[in-house]
Design a protein around this nucleic acid. Structure first.
Lengths: 236, 236
DNA sequence: CCACAATTTTGGAGTGACTGCAAGTTGGGT
DNA sequence: ACCCAACTTGCAGTCACTCCAAAATTGTGG
């Protein structure tokens, strides 16, 4: 098991294919590059490409396994006094500091984001991956709180948290793509992370509540702009 | 514009193609039916099929426009005193009563769900549709509360609500597919809708909080089973 | 009823992802 | 050196989907 020549070659080949592919995709766009071209660039046959990667999309998106492992760790290793939401918020803010690839803050993320956004196939695969990661996080949470298999709450919590981070990442990419500077985007993200995670914690129950009594005949049903999410959930 | 012969024929053709397609898909599964077969069954050429439907998946899933309109209505027509979450909960419970198709409670929904679940292409398209519907709901909410275009909260609220209903539908389909009776599933759904929407309202902030002091050396970090989500959001 | 234009349908010839198979080629153990 | 297993390759084929130009159909004005 000393890492034979065979194993090394396999790893190298896989790597070479993946690198050539991502390079071409980033340069010319996903749909503008054929698998045959990738194969030629990596100096292998088309069949070999499909031997290593199940689909063309996987050539660009094959971090799913890593993601699942990392997220499992976040849930498992949360600190004393931390809820699951707390743990993910901390991780998100840390990632913001370190320019982690997961949330799309790293160098060149705008290009990557643009390539994904422009290809329906890649967008679809991204969603599917997110779904699977969600299921994985839900399982991790369920295991941690030792929940009944019938209990749906872990899934809900996972879904809520991941939609929050996904939302933040998406806006980050959009802003960077629109030409905003990394500094500005980071500041904005830090602020919005506070808002959104706060909303997550305290609940969205009151959002957009329509007033019981129509005001003075002025506007129909406007909301206060500043603090329209209150803690009261009682319904009359 | 008296509904000429031409328009009627077009509508009929489209309908015929769609019906034949869904029939075949439900009977034999999405991947086991080719577009050519659908075309033959509908007595048109393959090109005509693609003339009416952009992709094979759209032959099975073309309610998106309806969905968006309905959801817009739910947001717009919420009653006095109702928050957005309230409005969607009410709609969900109503749908449960009426066997509405949107959440997969109608007759034959298990078959439909199985067909979708078995095809990666259909699953992917479903996710993409859900994403677009989400964006639409977010826009509706933003418009209703007259939010700043920069404000991300409407998107978060939309995402949260729709993941809740989606979660409920998914479990409903799974249970029906597993052979549970409609009655049982409905009862379960009604109960879970209460739990999940409640969690949405009051926030998931405390979920899975790890205790500050490890208990007595018994188990490591278990949670109370009944009410592990409290209203306190303060972090120590 | 007859051109004539607009629209729809169709056939045919691609392209590109992906599969299955049979025939090489290569690495590792004997 | 020899063999087996794993890996690679070429080839033929399927299927979704596109582009284009030639019918076929429908609506319109004389």
């Amino acid at each position: 098991m000393e890492e034979g020549l065979r194993e090394r070659k396999k790893r190298e080949t896989r790597r070479r294919i993946s690198d050539m592919a991502t390079g071409l995709f980033l340069m010319r766009g996903f749909d503008q590059v054929t698998v045959a071209e990738v194969a030629r660039a990596a100096d292998v046959s088309v069949n070999t490409v499909f031997n290593y990667f199940g689909t063309k999309e996987d050539l660009f998106l094959d971090r799913q396994a890593d993601l699942e492992e990392i997220y499992r760790g976040i849930v498992r290793d949360r600190r004393p006094g931390e809820s699951v939401v707390d743990a993910f918020r901390r991780d998100f803010l840390d990632a913001l500091d370190t320019g982690d690839w997961r949330y799309g803050f790293h160098e060149g993320a705008e290009v990557w984001g643009r390539v994904v956004a422009e290809s329906t196939a890649l967008r679809a695969r991204t969603l599917e991956i997110e779904r699977q990661v969600m299921a994985c996080v839900a399982a991790a949470i369920a295991e941690e709180v030792d929940a009944d298999p019938e209990d749906v709450r872990p899934e809900l919590v996972a879904e809520q948290i991941l939609s929050t981070t996904r939302l933040l990442s998406r806006h980050a990419l959009r802003r960077r793509a629109a030409g905003e500077s990394p500094r500005e985007t980071e500041a904005w993200l830090r602020e919005q992370a506070g808002v959104l995670f706060g909303l997550l914690e305290s609940g969205v129950g009151g959002y957009g509540r329509r007033p019981l009594v129509v005001a003075e005949d002025g506007e129909a049903a406007g909301d206060e702009e500043d603090d329209d999410v209150e803690g009261d959930h009682g319904r009359p």
